[in-house]
Amino acid sequence: MIEQQPDPLGADVDPIGLSIVPRRTLLSDSIDAWFPLGPGDRPRVADEQAVAAGDPLAELLREPRTIALPRSPGRKAPVEPGQPWSAGTSRRVRGGDAPPEGELLFRSGGRWRVAASERFETLVAPFAGVVREVRRGIGIRVAADARAIAGTDVLAGPTSGRLQIVTAADGQLRAQHVDVGAAGAIIVAGARMDAEALARARAVGIRGVIVAGLGIKERRDFVASERRGQAAVHGLPQFGVLVLDGAARRPIAAAHMALFEALEGRSVAIVGHPPSLVVDATGIDLPMPAPDAVRVRSGPLTGAEGRWAGLAGPRRFPAGVSVEAAYVRFGDRAPIAIPIGDLERFA
């Protein structure tokens, strides 16, 4: 149990000590998103090109494989690793019928190795921006002045859709409660979600999920499900999961929920690098937390939010551990000493 001793000094707000509480960026003023590509993927944009949401960024190989070309494609003109390659209409290559297109990897023993596939899927821009960098086989960087809410991890994605809140900050969305009415939306799904609910969300056409915590089992199940789905004949529509906090169950922070409530119904996008929710905040003032608001991120009071009431100094906590602590005032109650490391604040 956390020490429940009231503050003997009746400490007021101590802004000096507050600065050592871990700070999380709640909202950034711009986004510089990276979309990774693999060998064989084909960019469809160029440097400094403006893209709108939904424009194709690249075509990604599905079921990629390596083939060896019996003849060099560079007899007429020099070729470089990373260059696109096309089999033409009649050429046959080792390993079966010629795939339509690919990318030159390297030449060894006089033969080029090519990353190729017969099928591609399109990676579309989840938000409008300007392409800042295109590196074939490596990735595409897109920058925008849109604001972004930072998370900790993104699984799958990128994706975009309208924002919809379907459960409370501390709720857990179960599979039977996933409603087809949320199809096309990125839903805010509360504290935690299991793999079955994620699978159903995808199945009913939901475009993405925002959740406070996602356990390692759910992550593995979801990633395996995605892999199977991507290998299917028709692939899967875009879908992504944005994890705001980590793996353990904890409610969505009030600061995050206030933003989601202000943005509900607007178009948003989930991107993985950096893991964030890109939002269209044109014309609205987004609510920001009070400067002295702190949140208990871990420990017995996980999820509780209160006001900073000053440093408490080294304190002894359960298991006989002494760590630096701070007083936090929850509502009208007397301040409680909580380890500094268990606190966080948004800015």
Binding site: G246, G299, A319, V321, P339, G341
Partner: peptide
């Protein structure tokens, strides 16, 4: 992700 957190109790 948060190596400083949850440093007491279990």
């Amino acid at each position: 992700a948060r190596p400083w957190a949850d440093a007491t109790g279990d």
